[in-house]
Design a protein around this nucleic acid. Structure first.
Lengths: 342, 342
DNA sequence: CTGTTAGCGCGTTCAT
DNA sequence: ATGAACGCGCTAACAG
C-alpha cells in the first residue's frame, strides 16, 4: 500500500547476489571491483545486476564508507551571471570526476550562509566551495573536517585554500587606462568594502592614482548596499555633487548595469560626455553601443580551478599547506573610454 | 592517524544520549520532536547536544527513513541566464522547505541527461525537476518512484507534472504585433524544433500569420544547432537569400543575442531598417539602444512553481492526476519594432 | 514516558 | 576466491 504507483521495492545487492547465486559480499566485490572475485562470477553478478536493473544505494554506501560524493557549493546570487558562471565551472569539473554539486544560495546574507554550512555539515559532504561572506561558515566546516576552498573572495582567518582573481591588478589597469586618457576626476562605485574583492578593487584604484600623482578624493567614492539596484541613484547623487567627474569606474557588474542605466537616463553620451569602465565583463557590455571597456575575469576557469583544487585535496593527491591560486584578469579596452574632453 | 587535522570523530546521537543519561531512542525522540519525551528530559538532551556540538547525520537518517531531503535539478545550461533564473527560483522554494538542490548540467546532451538521472536514482532523491531533453530520463526516474516535474519543456510520454510557459500564445502576440505594423516578411530563428518550446513558438508564429492571411514561407525559417553561436551566421545567410525581410523573430535569448550582433555588424539600424522581437526577455535587452521588444517569461516564478508542485507531491498534500501548470508570458513592446518602411 | 531490539543497504574484516 | 558476521548512525516498533 506504500507502493501505490507500482514501485515495489528497490532492488538491493542482496537480490543481485541471490540471482547470481553468490553471497552479498561477493556481489559487492564483483560490483565495485574492490577485492577478489573470479572472472566468471563477476560476469554472472554483473549480468544479474543489469537484468534486475540494480542501482547501488549511495546513501547506504556513504554511510558505510563515511564519505559521499557530494560537494557543497555556497554562492551569493545565482541570478547574477558572475555566480552562475562560477557554479557552471565548478559543476563541470565536479561532474567529470563523478561528484555532484549541492548548490546553496545565500543571497549575501551571513545567517543564510551559516545555515547553509550547517546543512552541509549534516549532509557529511567531504568538501565545499564557497564565496564567503564571513569567516564563520568556513571555519565551522573546516573545524569538522570538511575541506573548504574559498573562491572569488577570501575570508578565512584560519588558513584554507582559495582561488582568487587579482582585483587590485585589474582595477589598477582600468584606472591607469583612464588616467592615461587624461581623466582626473574618476568616480568609483562599489557595493561592499568588507570583502577582498571590494577592498582590492579600491586599492587598485588608489594605487593607480598614487602612481599618477593624482590626489585620492573620498567624495568620488560612492558606496551602495549589497545587491541593491541603487547604483543608479548613487551615481546620480554623486554626479550632482561632483559635476567635474569625467569618468566612472563601476566596481562590479551590478554597479555597471546601474551606471549604464543612469547615464542613459541622463542622456549623457558615452564616451563623449563621460567615460566608463567596469570590473567584471558581461555579454551585454559588448552588445551595447558603445561597448563597455571592462576588466574581464576568467570566471568559469576560476570555478573550475577551485573544483580541481578541492578534488586534489579530497583524493589526497595534494596535501601541502593551504594555498591561494591567483588568476589574472585582463583589461579589455572598448568604446566607452576616450580622452578627456576640454 | 586518520585524524590528522584534529577532527577526532563526529559526535553521534549515542554520545548525546550518554551525556544526557538516556537511551539513544529517547535522545532521538527529544531531538526530532517525533514521539514522546518528558519536558525535563528533552531539555537535558538538547543541552547535551548543544554542548557537544551534535549535528545529526543526514546520511544515516536518510538510510533509515528511506528518503532524503535532496531534490535533483537537471537543466541544460547554467551559463544561460534563463536556466540560472530557473534554478534560482527552484532553490529558493526548496530551501525554505528545508530541502537542498543537487544541480546537474546536461549541456543539452541526452546522454548526459540520462547519466544525471541515473546518478539521482543512486542518490535516492525523492523528487526531481528537469528541463527534459528526451522522455527517457524522466521515465527512468518515474519508473523508480521518483516524483518528477518537468519545467519549461514537456517531454514525458507517461504523464507527469509540468510547469510551462504558453509559448504559442507569446509567439503569437509578438508576431501579431509585427503584422499589425505592416510587416509581411518576418524571419524566424530557432535552434530546436524537437521540444515543446520550439514547436510552440513556431506554431504561434504560424497562427498569427494565418489569422492575418499572410502566407507562411518556410524559407523565412532559419534553424541552427542547439546552443551554437551561429545564429548570426544563419541570419546572415537568410538575409542574403531573402532581401525583402523587414523583421526578425528570435525564438530565444541565444538567438536574440546572435541576431543583435549580426544586425550591428551589418550596420542595420533597428528599427528603421529592420524590426526585431525576441522570445525570452533578458536584462541586456533594455540596456541596448533601441531596447528590444520581447516576450517576457516569468522564469523565476516558473522555477518556484515547479518546486512548489514537487513539494506538494512529496508531502502527499497534492495527490491528483498529473497536472500541467501554464504560465502566461507578456509581450513587452519596446523600441526595436516599428511600422514597416516603404 | 522510556529502553530494548532490530534493521535500513552496503562494505569490510576475518575465517575458511 | 568466497561467505558469515558485523557495524556505519539513526529511528521505528514494541514492550514495559
Amino acid at each position: 500500500m506504500s507502493h501505490v504507483d507500482g514501485v515495489p521495492r528497490r532492488v538491493t545487492i542482496g537480490d543481485v547476489a541471490r540471482a547470481a547465486g553468490v553471497s552479498p559480499s561477493t556481489a559487492s566485490r564483483a560490483l565495485t571491483g574492490q577485492g577478489y572475485a573470479a572472472a566468471s562470477v563477476k560476469l554472472r553478478v554483473l549480468a544479474a545486476a543489469d537484468r534486475l536493473g540494480y542501482v547501488p544505494d549511495d546513501i547506504a554506501r556513504s554511510l558505510k564508507r563515511r564519505t559521499s560524493r557530494l560537494v557543497g557549493v555556497v554562492i551569493s546570487d545565482l541570478r547574477n551571471q558572475f555566480y552562475a558562471d562560477l557554479a557552471a565551472g565548478i559543476e563541470q569539473v565536479l561532474g567529470e570526476a563523478g561528484y555532484q554539486m549541492v548548490l546553496v544560495n545565500d543571497d549575501g546574507d551571513r545567517d543564510r550562509e551559516l545555515q547553509g554550512a550547517r546543512t552541509l555539515l549534516a549532509m557529511r559532504v567531504p568538501g565545499a566551495i564557497v564565496t564567503p561572506l564571513s569567516p564563520e561558515a568556513g571555519a565551522l566546516l573546516t573545524a569538522q573536517g570538511v575541506r573548504v576552498v574559498e573562491v572569488d573572495r577570501q575570508m578565512a582567518q584560519t588558513q584554507c585554500d582559495a582561488v582568487l582573481v587579482d582585483s587590485e591588478h585589474g582595477a589598477r589597469a582600468a584606472t591607469t587606462h583612464l588616467l592615461e586618457l587624461g581623466h582626473r576626476r574618476i568616480a568609483f562605485l562599489i557595493d561592499e568594502l568588507e570583502w577582498t574583492t571590494g577592498v582590492g578593487r579600491l586599492a587598485g584604484y588608489k594605487a593607480a592614482l598614487r602612481s599618477a600623482k593624482v590626489r585620492f578624493d573620498q567624495k568620488l567614492v560612492a558606496r551602495v548596499g549589497f545587491g541593491s539596484g541603487d547604483a543608479a541613484t548613487a551615481l546620480s547623487t554623486l554626479l550632482d555633487a561632483q559635476p567635474d567627474v569625467t569618468a566612472v569606474f563601476a566596481a562590479n557588474n551590478l554597479m555597471a548595469s546601474g551606471v549604464w542605466q543612469e547615464l542613459q537616463r541622463r542622456r549623457l553620451r558615452v564616451p563623449r560626455d563621460i567615460s566608463l569602465v567596469a570590473f567584471d565583463d558581461l555579454p551585454w557590455m559588448t552588445m551595447v553601443q558603445p561597448a563597455v571597456s571592462a576588466v574581464s575575469q576568467p570566471v568559469v576557469a576560476m570555478g573550475a580551478r577551485a573544483a580541481e583544487l578541492l578534488l586534489a585535496r579530497l583524493s589526497g593527491e595534494f596535501t601541502g599547506p593551504p594555498k591561494t591560486d591567483w588568476l589574472t584578469p585582463t583589461f579589455e579596452r572598448r568604446g566607452s573610454t576616450r580622452k578627456v574632453s576640454g
